[in-house]
Design a binder for these strands. Structure first.
Length: 501
RNA sequence: GAACGGGUAGCUCAGUCGGUAGAGCAUCGGACUUUUAAUCCGGUGGCCGCGGGUUCGAAUCCCGCCCCGUUCACCA
């Protein structure tokens, strides 16, 4: 075909492959097969081969027959023979094609094979003289034709925008990304097993809520056509899970998505995954012990021990973890005693003396929170619990049994990442109503994130909720920590980017 | 929302002082029966993010816009 154009723009590369597809069909082969019966995965075949090799007298004579399948990731043509590498989910193996062995027609048909195609190979596994475990093909089958060029084999795909927008390309080109997500999956699996083993029941509560409650955040709004009303994507499952404790469940948890309509950066994605649990007859101190145990079980399962590296620092999560009352931590790291005053202006003055920026809209609780974020949080590299937070910034937490100005609340930090939030749950409906009213005032002052009074939730509390402790863990943050990822987008398969045209 | 950095072939990247747009890989053609970033020979391939401006001449200088990243603000 002298009129054939030898171009290689993206569309021309695709056209080449479409031409090959037609040739394949023209000779009666189907380029998109329905099934292939593997006798083993590549990992299994390698393991079996090495086992036999280890126990054999004549190591060079060891060979096992196998049918393996995978994606062609490289191809080296040598005239009357050829080598390819194929890769399945967990491993790679070399394939050797010999013209005599597979037959002339099948060997010629190799020229219609492209990088990215899936093939199945029937043959014999043994070592080449260079020592590489190789399947010597008796025959092969094209399983799926790939119509687009893969990213380059050596440098892989580094363009972050393409990696996030077309994660499938990232996974194909950078197999180590699979490991990151396997760790994330292992994390969740370990957490679920741990909770289930302790009698926690996994439940599902509404994603669409008429009031977006349970946290301080701006929600996404959506619309229900039949009811002709706006609904909110949930910002937290908290208020529903507590209704279940009211109803009689004693240990519940949910691992699911929350949605918050706020800024996007290396630590925030508009949708993120939380685990929340509620345990009746427990308080925050008991829950702190359990939380430590749970984190350590996860860290051990995912990273094989209490030590791991995060962004250049070695973290040691051996128990017990450091525990610091919030106001003591502020005293230690910011050098000011905010517990000495309850006066908003006094507190502001102290905070400014510690170099923290304070504006006039901030109340006492917010000021304490600012000082914590600016002076304490950056110091919390090794696992640390902070506990006893101001009542103003903890509207769903029970007041401290010895001090009504603070709540029985704790958070855990590792590598300066805030990993969880927990408290003795406020179950006094009168106090809860007061807290909501306080939030309403904040809202009137212009705080769009202040929480909204949920009458039905108060009604539930009036029915009666036993003493309960609750915990929320940000799964994405924890995944970042355990995979040494600097950005939340590296632990979310399909992070939100601005949509393209 | 702000500052800084980036956007050049399918992928990874060069591109000097404003003077014909480059390399490697991939791809196409050819050689090669143990290679493994195979090798050798010969080709194809570009809206230089988009739109204006300055200039005889712009990937390069200026202005605006889009997208990505980092930091900051807000937040978990």
């Amino acid at each position: 075909m002298s009129e054939e154009q030898h171009h290689s723009t993206e569309e021309d590369l695709r056209q080449h492959r479409l031409d090959k597809l037609e040739r394949i069909r023209a000779r009666g082969d189907e380029p998109f097969k329905y099934i292939f019966e593997r006798t083993a995965t590549i990992t299994e075949a390698r393991a079996t081969f090495e086992e036999q090799e280890n126990s054999a007298e004549d190591k060079a004579g060891v060979q096992i027959t196998a049918a393996l399948a995978g994606r062609v990731v490289s191809f080296r043509d040598h005239g009357k023979s050829a080598f390819a590498d194929i890769r399945d989910e967990h491993a790679r193996v070399q394939v050797y094609f010999n013209q005599k062995k597979v037959g002339e027609a099948a060997f010629t048909a190799l020229s219609d094979l492209d990088l990215g195609d899936f093939i199945g190979v029937n043959g014999v596994v043994h070592r080449t003289r260079t020592g590489e475990i190789t399947i010597f093909a008796d025959s092969y089958t094209l399983l799926t034709k790939s119509l687009r060029a893969l990213p380059e084999k050596y440098h892989g795909l580094t363009d972050v925008e393409t990696r996030y927008r077309q994660r499938y390309l990232d996974l194909v080109a950078n197999p180590e990304v699979l490991d990151t997500f396997r760790k994330r999956i292992k994390l969740i699996d370990t957490m679920r097993t741990w909770l289930t083993a302790r009698g926690f029941l996994e439940v599902e509560t509404p994603m669409l809520q008429p009031l977006a409650g349970g946290a301080s955040a701006r929600p996404f709004i959506t619309h229900h056509n039949t009811y002709d009303c706006d609904l909110y994507m949930r910002i937290a499952p908290e208020l529903y899970l507590k209704r279940l404790i009211v109803g009689g469940f004693e240990r519940v948890f949910e691992i699911n998505r929350n949605f918050r309509n706020e800024g996007v950066d290396t630590r925030h994605n508009p949708e993120f995954t939380m685990m929340e649990l509620y345990e009746a007859y427990q308080d925050y101190l008991g829950l702190m012990d359990e939380t430590e145990e749970l984190f350590c079980a996860i860290i051990d399962a995912v990273n094989g021990g209490p030590e791991f590296e995060y962004q250049g620092t070695i973290i040691n999560a051996t128990r017990p973890w450091k525990r610091l009352a919030l106001f003591d931590a502020i005293k230690e790291y910011a050098g000011i005693d905010l517990a000495a005053t309850r006066d908003r202006d006094e507190a502001a003055k102290l905070a400014k003396s510690a170099g923290v920026k304070i504006d006039n809209t901030m109340g006492y609780g917010k000021i304490v929170d600012e000082v914590m974020s600016a002076c304490v949080k950056p110091k919390l590299v090794q696992p640390t619990f902070l506990y006893d937070y101001p009542v103003e910034i903890s509207p769903l937490a029970k007041k401290h049994r010895d001090n009504p100005a603070i709540t029985e609340r704790f958070q855990a930090f590792i590598g300066t990442l805030e990993l969880c939030n927990a408290f003795s749950e406020l179950n006094d409906p009168i106090d809860q109503r007061d807290r909501f009213m306080q939030q309403a005032k904040e809202r009137e002052r212009g705080d769009e994130e202040a929480q909204i009074l949920d009458e039905d939730f108060i009604t539930a509390l009036e029915i009666g909720m036993p003493p309960t402790a609750g915990l929320g863990i940000g799964i994405d943050r924890l995944a970042m920590l355990l995979t040494n990822s600097g950005s939340i987008r590296d632990v979310i398969l399909f992070p939100q980017l601005r949509p393209t045209e």
